[in-house]
C-alpha cells in the first residue's frame, strides 16, 4: 500500500512538473494537453469508484460526462444571452460562475445516475454493461434530436466561465483549477474507499451473498456508489466543456464511455491513481501515435489488446509487479 501511495504521489508530481516546465518554456499547448489529461483522469476517478471498488462495469459513464458538459454549456449560453433557462417551477437564470455551475452539473449527473442506476442495478454482469451502454446511447440520441441546444452540431459558448480571483482563460490557471479538483477527488475517493461504506461496497463486490448474510444490502450500497461516481464524472464533464468552450453529443457517445473505461483499465482497476496514470498515458499515446500514423487508433487498439491479454493489472499493476488486487 505504501508503495502505491508513493507511486500515486509520483504520478501527480510528474503531471504537475510537466506543466511547470511547460509554463517556464512558454509551451501553452502542452499545458492544454495536461489539462485535458487531468480532466479525463477526474472522469476516470469517478468511474473507478463504481467499476474498481464497486465492481459495477458501467459502459455508460459518458452519459454523466455529457450531462455535466451540457449543464455547463446550457447555463453559460443562457448567461451569455441574459435569458432564463427555465421559468417553471422557479426561475433559473443562466450562470457563468464555475462555483455555481459545478454543483448544478454534479446534481444533474447524480439525478440521472439515480434513475439509470435504479433500473440498471436490477441486473448484473453482462446485462449491466449493456443496459448502461443503452441508456447512455439513449441520452446521446436525445441530445442529437433536440435542436434547441444545437442538436447534432453541439453548442458552443464564447467565454470560459469564471472563477473568483483567477483568469480562467490563462491555460496554467485553468490547469490549476482542474488539478485542484482532481486532488480533491482523489482524497475523497480514498476516504470513501476506507470508510465503512467503502468497505461494505468492496465486500459486496467480492461476495454478494456473504455481504448480504452480515446485513449489508448490496443494492442500496451500489446505487449510492453509482451516484457518487456519476457526480464526479459529471464534474469532469463540466470542466471539459469549459476547456473546449463547446459541448456536443459526442461527449455522450459510447466511444467516450469506452475511453473513460480505458483510462481506468489501462492504469489499473481499483487503484487510486490508476485513472490518472491511464489518462496521462492515453493522452501521450494519442499525441505520439497521432504523429506516427493517421491510423493511430489501430495502434492504440493493438496496444490495449496487449495490455488486456498480457498485463491484466494495468500500468500500476505492472509497476508494482503484483497481480490486480481486485
Amino acid at each position: 500500500m505504501a508503495r502505491e501511495t508513493l507511486l500515486t504521489l509520483a504520478i501527480m508530481a510528474a503531471l504537475l512538473g510537466t506543466v511547470i516546465v511547460a509554463q517556464m518554456m512558454g509551451e501553452g499547448f502542452v499545458i492544454t494537453l495536461a489539462t485535458k489529461a487531468t480532466i479525463f483522469a477526474l472522469a476516470g476517478v469517478g468511474l473507478n469508484l463504481a467499476l474498481g471498488y464497486g465492481g459495477l462495469v458501467s459502459f455508460g459513464h459518458a452519459a454523466f460526462f455529457g450531462i455535466g458538459g451540457y449543464v455547463t454549456g446550457i447555463l453559460a449560453s443562457h448567461a451569455g444571452a441574459g435569458t432564463a433557462v427555465a421559468t417553471l417551477p422557479f426561475t433559473l437564470m443562466g450562470s457563468n460562475q464555475m462555483l455555481g455551475i459545478w454543483p448544478m452539473a454534479m446534481l444533474a449527473a447524480g439525478a440521472a445516475a439515480l434513475l439509470i442506476g435504479a433500473l440498471s442495478l436490477r441486473t448484473s454482469g453482462v446485462y449491466f454493461i449493456m443496459v448502461t451502454l443503452a441508456f447512455a446511447q439513449m441520452l446521446s440520441y436525445f441530445a442529437i434530436s433536440w435542436p434547441r441546444y444545437g442538436g447534432e452540431d453541439g453548442l458552443s459558448f464564447y467565454v470560459r466561465n469564471s472563477f473568483p480571483g483567477l483568469n480562467t482563460l490563462v491555460p496554467v490557471q485553468y490547469f490549476a483549477i482542474c488539478m485542484a479538483l482532481l486532488v480533491l477527488a482523489l482524497i475523497a475517493s480514498s476516504v470513501i474507499v476506507r470508510s465503512r461504506f467503502g468497505l461494505a461496497l468492496q465486500a459486496a463486490r467480492q461476495n454478494d451473498q456473504r455481504a448480504a448474510a452480515v446485513g449489508i444490502r448490496p443494492y442500496a450500497l451500489r446505487l449510492v456508489a453509482f451516484v457518487i461516481s456519476a457526480m464526479i464524472t459529471g464534474l469532469a464533464g463540466s470542466l471539459y466543456a469549459d476547456l473546449n468552450r463547446f459541448v456536443s453529443p459526442a461527449m455522450m457517445s459510447w466511444h467516450m464511455s469506452g475511453e473513460i473505461m480505458v483510462f481506468v483499465i489501462l492504469g489499473g482497476v481499483g487503484r487510486l491513481a490508476g485513472p490518472v496514470a491511464g489518462a496521462v498515458v492515453f493522452i501521450l499515446l494519442e499525441h505520439l501515435l497521432g504523429g506516427v500514423s493517421e491510423y493511430w487508433k489501430a495502434l492504440l487498439g493493438l496496444l490495449l489488446l496487449a495490455i488486456v491479454l498480457f498485463a491484466p493489472g494495468g500500468l500500476i499493476g505492472l509497476a508494482l509487479r503484483r497481480d490486480r488486487h481486485v
Binding site: 467499476l51 454482469g125 491510423y295 487508433k297
Partner: peptide
C-alpha cells in the same frame, strides 16, 4: 484467450478490436 476472463477484460479487448477493425477498414 478471453473466455475465462471477467467481462471487464472482454469489453476492453473487444473495444480494442473495434479500433483495429475500423481503422483497418478505413486504411
Amino acid at each position: 484467450r478471453l473466455y475465462h476472463r471477467d467481462h471487464l477484460d472482454q469489453v476492453l479487448a473487444t473495444f480494442a478490436l473495434i479500433l483495429v477493425f475500423s481503422e483497418g477498414t478505413r486504411w
